[in-house]
Each structure stands twice: as structure tokens, then as C-alpha cells.
Amino acid sequence: MKKFILSASVVAAMLAGTNAKAQLLDEQNVTVTMDLQPILQLNMNGSQNVDFVFDQISEYVGGITQYGATNLQVSSTVSWDLYAAGFSSNASGGSLLWDNQVEYGASADPNAVTTLPLTLLELHQDKINSSVAGATGTYADYFQAFNSTAPLGSNAVYATSAPYTKPAATEKFIAGHNATSDFIAGGSYLILGGGFVGNGSNYSYTMDYRIIPGLPAVFPRATSGSGNNTTSAALNATTTTLYAQPGVYTMNVKYVLVEN
């Protein structure tokens, strides 16, 4: 009995002691996960087919210009670059030429050729590329005005057989450039930024197109190579006896928006 009383006293003392030192502390935890998925959104307004029909002598000589045929609008959550790539089925095979769909006439003249370089197509963008510090080519963008005295290659489209490979520092970009330090920051044409919004911002570009066949049709504005140089294309550089075979030709321009 004596032992029982002693044991009970010890237990009571322990309980009393722990109660005196007890501290209120309770907690609950919440885990917050944030998934920031990269979004690059390019809207293209305007017809997907831009037709140039040369059926007047004046059009051969003076060319045809399609003003504002394409409007590009960018919304991006990451820094981005935008470029145009002239492409065709021939280009995918390594020849930077238009695809000839139909030949008009007897096609008997050996000087009439269907090897039209992609670079005969010229582009003009409505506002200057604001981020080209790392560009090394003669022309960093397509902002040079369309006029009769524009230097050769100033507006020739960048032609390539690899349209999804970012162009080199020597080529033209519409916005941003090859260097990682040349980019447009994430944003949208829908949001006021730098005092501009909509078509006035760096997130919207209006593109003009021009083709000047010349007479004879040697396409004097075409350049050799990918487009950003001042050397004339083979059609009129090697001999003046070659000219374009009348017919239907097609190519396409890919506007590529990429993360910087």
C-alpha cells in the first residue's frame, strides 16, 4: 500500500509539471504551386494569299506593291524575336528558288528560265526594329523605304532552306535579332507599353510586299544568297540574255516568332 501511494504521487507531480509548462502552438500548412507556361502567340491579319498579277507593261517596269497586306500581332510571356523566312518546295531541296506551277506559251526559248530567286520578293515593315545591337549585316530589318533608289538587298526577303532555324546575325529580323541580348521583352499589342498600344507598339507590324520584274523580266532587285547582301542574283548577273519564263510561280513567307 505504501508503494502504491508513492507511485501515484509521482504520476500526479509529472502531470502538474507538464501542464504548467505547456504552450499553445498549432499550425496548418498550405502548398502553393505556380505553373508559368511559356506562351508565344502570333496573329496574322490579312489574306494568306498575296497575288501579284503582271499583265501590264507598266507593272513589269514599275512593279507591284501591296501595301499593308499583312498585319502581325504578337503576345508573348517571354522575350522574343520575329523574322520572315522566304521558303518554297525548291528551297526545301536546297535551291532558293520560286516553285514554277505553270509555264505560259510554247516554252521554246532557251533564254527563258524558271529559276527565279526567292529574294526577288521585297518586304517593308512599318516600324524600325528597335533591338539590333548585335546585328552584323548591312541591313538589320525591312524598314528601308520602298523607292527607286533603295540599295540592292535593303528589302530582299531572307531566303532559307531551314525556316525554323534562327537567321544569322548578318540577316534581317522584323523584331529582335540573333544575339541573345537583342530581343523584345514579353508583352502584347493589347497592353499599353512605352506609351504605345495596338498597331503603334513594338508588338504589331504591318508588312508591305513588292515585286519588280523589270523589262525584260530579270528581276533587278533580286540578290544572290539569302537576301541580305548587295550582289545581284544569277538571273541577271551572269548574262543579260536570260529572262523569266512567263508562267505562274509560288513561294511562301513564313513569319516565325521564337523565344529569344
Binding site: Q23, L24, L25, D26, E27, Q28, N29, V30, T31, V32, T33, M34, D35, L36, Q37, P38, S76, T77, V78, A185, G186, G187
Partner: peptide, 20 residues
């Protein structure tokens, strides 16, 4: 988030505490 941050999956834990 706006447009200043690197795309990715991120996490934090919030602890709510009841104390004297």
C-alpha cells in the same frame, strides 16, 4: 505574374501558426 518571370513550375509553402 506579368511578363517578367522565367517560365517554369514553382512552389512555396505557407504555414499558419496559432500561438500564445
Amino acid at each position: 505574374p506579368g511578363f517578367d518571370y522565367l517560365p517554369g513550375r514553382y512552389e512555396i509553402s505557407i504555414k499558419f501558426c496559432l500561438t500564445e
